[in-house]
Amino acid sequence: MAKKLDSYEEMIKGLWRENPVFVQVLGMCPMLAVTNSAVNAVVMGVATFFVLVSSSFLVSSFRGVIPKQVRISIYVVIIATFVTVADYTLLALVPAIHKELGAFIPLIVANCMILGRQEAYASKNSVKFAVLDAIGTAGGFMFALLALGGVREILGEGKIFGVPLFGDNFEPWVIMILPPGGFITLGLILLFFNWVTARRAARNQLQPQPVGSDIR
């Protein structure tokens, strides 16, 4: 690593500039499948957060001793272990939500965002930065889940976290709860994200570009 890492920057980049969902377009499967309500989104986000941060911590701690020939297998073993822990914990604590999330909790193990962070970052950086990076990335993922889940619950049921917003006569947008609503909402949010990025890029071209603010 030639350039010096700034801990704040390493953490914050996952939230917006390198947001795993809106910029890297990773982790689409849970993104579309479990965001039909804000609560589901939060639980999924917390589970992913736990798995990613713990895995990054372990992988980074043992980065010197994991032989590179079998590193992916060992990452998967580590991730799968934490996913199992998360799975059982949710089943014990919040059985109703666990039932709704269903197969998508075990499927966290296949979330390419997590394996990607291990391979691309945690295995090459010190524990401190690996954990900060994981917190940022998982936070960005949670933010994305919540954005999608919030929009879908507000339009689909007229509620947010189960609290009614519009009174009894609200006409639910059924499609928002169904899978197509996930695709449409995600598409529109990506559209918005790209629009913001493009606008910012256009503005930065006019002004002198500050050092280090490389706009993707």
Binding site: I66, I74, V77, I78, A80, T81, V85
Partner: peptide, 16 residues
């Protein structure tokens, strides 16, 4: 390496 990783993983899973 794999065996050790698997062993600890198994321990944790049994624990939870």
């Amino acid at each position: 390496s794999m065996a050790v990783a698997g062993f600890f993983s198994g321990l944790i899973i049994i624990g939870i």
